[in-house]
Design a protein around this nucleic acid. Structure first.
Lengths: 91, 91
DNA sequence: CTGTTTTGTATAATATAATGTACAAATATG
DNA sequence: CATATTTGTACATTATATTATACAAAACAG
């Protein structure tokens, strides 16, 4: 046991980064949390939770990506990952 | 109004694809839903829901990526997206 | 600086994700 | 084929995400 050095990135880190992405998308469009939440039919608190790395649902995260036209690209990324044969085996 | 043709990919499609990714990761390692859920301290039903595109939480999804060493790469993807200046503006 | 808007936070209520269980359907294995 | 394993599904319970609201703190505009 003890796989030593890996896994320094934890799920909580990824949640924070997903929130940071959503926040950057919103701010680039000059929207307030209030405005975005209204457009997505979500509460402002839910947007705030998402952006601050709380344990949101996939739906909340994906609604934000969808609103900022990032869903298609994200979907493609997922599809590639799904099709990807274990690249680590090449090393 | 009527931005015409875009947004054919919906959040529900992305959820299905996230589930497909998780399922493929599990199957490549020859694990059953039962075995994976035990390792992640989640119920088998939760794994099944994730893999079948239900509205899971980010934590459930990220735990699976983490177990299959995909979290670091996913985190990097998110960080790039967050830093990315609006590439569409180049066109 | 004062007033305005936005954001962070707390509380209570509601909606729903996660769980445990049981059983049926589907897949694999002998 | 029979049988074991895995997966899909349904139900009730528990945990928690979402919501609505109110208010304080920060950031912004005059």
């Amino acid at each position: 046991m003890n796989e030593i050095f890996f896994d320094s990135v934890k799920p909580s880190d990824a949640k924070l980064q997903m929130g940071a992405w959503c926040k950057s998308l919103r701010q680039r469009k000059g929207l307030s949390q209030e405005e975005l939440s209204a457009k997505l039919n979500l509460s402002r608190v839910t947007i705030h939770h998402l952006e601050s790395g709380r344990n949101s649902t996939l739906e909340t995260f994906l609604k934000v990506l969808n609103h900022f036209q990032e869903l298609e690209s994200f979907y493609t990324y997922l599809a590639e990952k799904t099709a990807e044969k274990d690249v680590k085996s090449l090393y």
